[in-house]
């Protein structure tokens, strides 16, 4: 056989293989399943359907935040402000909804109807996203520094509004409805259903829409995307606003669930959202990754942490385990991709 024919056949074979992204996503999904099975063997009573459901339902908030964070990472930008926004929007929603006639400062608010309070809280969340966008796009400050700043800004405002603690009195009766509503006659709550919907919509947007396509292009090669007529700046602004709104919704739902606006809520959620994205194969350099991968990344993290507590490790192990998991994930992905491209 001639060399060319061999080369041709090899190229054809390469074409039939999965794209790098699908490859990594399947790798992550496989790792998630393998970890779950491993945990089932090692931990008594782990292998239950309810446990699988719990892995998702207990993590709806972080997974929802992970969507915005993943989109931004794919476009080549960080968002570490989401945890702060969760606290801010929850606190604002409660504050706006509290009746005006409270006994003290922490029990009186603006007396808005619940829906209006939530809309206004969402606007507050969005304004943090706008600050992110302004600093990253207009001033070109590195996104890691900007969003560390807005993380503190958002949480700082929440702390001022709650005087460093929380607001949970004098709320309208319907304030707790959204966060505690169960769906379809099961125990599954509305936020979980919303998260599932968000995942489906996000996967659709990412895979099937122009918006999703542009996000990848900007992350993959910002110079070429600009010369190809993409308005990079405007797109990144949209992504920051989207991420902030998602975080705002999460914060409001959590506030509704607990009927309180707690200034320390969502602490480290930005970190977990980043961790699950990285576990899910999203590349920090941009242009690579997927929402599905992030979802399985969340499953991996949840399995590791919940199995660890099942294995009679103290909850104190969570930080160490997260560090090890991210390290292994990054090394494995680098190694897998390098091998694939060499082969």
């Amino acid at each position: 056989m001639t060399d060319q024919a061999v080369a041709g056949r090899r190229l054809a074979k390469q074409d039939n293989r999965l794209s790098d992204e699908m490859f990594i996503t399947s790798l992550v999904a496989g790792a998630a399943v393998a970890l779950f099975l491993l945990a089932s063997i090692l931990v008594p009573n782990f292998f239950q359907f309810q446990n699988v459901v719990n892995l998702v339902t207990n993590n709806w908030a972080v997974i929802s935040l992970g969507v915005g964070v993943t989109f931004l990472l794919v476009s080549g930008n960080f968002d570490l402000s989401v945890g702060g926004i969760v606290a801010l929007s929850g606190v604002l929603a409660v504050w706006f909804a509290q009746a005006t006639d409270g006994a003290n400062a922490l029990s009186s608010g603006w007396g808005m109807p619940t829906w209006l309070a939530m809309v206004c809280a969402l606007i507050g969340a969005m304004s943090i996203g706008a600050v992110n966008a302004a600093f990253v796009v207009a001033l070109r400050v590195p996104s890691i520094i900007v969003t560390l700043g807005t993380m503190m800004l958002a949480r700082g405002i929440a702390q001022v509004v709650t005087q460093g603690s929380q607001r949970n009195t004098n709320l309208p009766a319907d304030f707790g409805t959204l966060g505690n509503m169960t769906m379809f006659g099961t125990s599954i709550k509305l936020p979980v259903v919303l998260m599932a919907t968000l995942i489906f919509v996000a996967v659709f947007v990412e895979r099937k829409t122009v918006f999703g396509r542009l996000t990848y292009l900007i992350g993959a090669n910002p110079v070429a995307s600009r010369l190809s007529g993409v308005d990079n700046a405007r797109h990144v602004v949209k992504l920051y606003l989207f991420s902030a709104v998602m975080a705002g919704v999460v914060g409001i739902l959590l506030a509704s669930e607990f009927k309180s606006g707690f200034s320390n809520r969502g602490t480290l959620m930005e970190f977990d959202a980043l961790v699950i994205s990285l576990l899910g194969g999203v590349a920090i350099a941009g242009g690579f990754g997927s929402v599905i991968g992030m979802f399985f990344g969340a499953i991996i993290l949840a399995t590791v942490t919940s199995a660890a507590t099942g294995l009679v490790l103290s909850p104190d192990w969570q930080f160490t385990l997260k560090a090890i998991a991210v390290f292994i994930a990054i090394m494995a992905q680098t190694w897998a991709l390098a091998r694939r491209h060499a082969g």
Binding site: T150, M152, A154, R155, I157, G164, S263
Partner: peptide, 10 residues
């Protein structure tokens, strides 16, 4: 004291 985070972030 609860103004601290806000001030540092700003």
């Amino acid at each position: 004291a609860y103004f601290q985070t806000l001030v540092v972030g700003t």
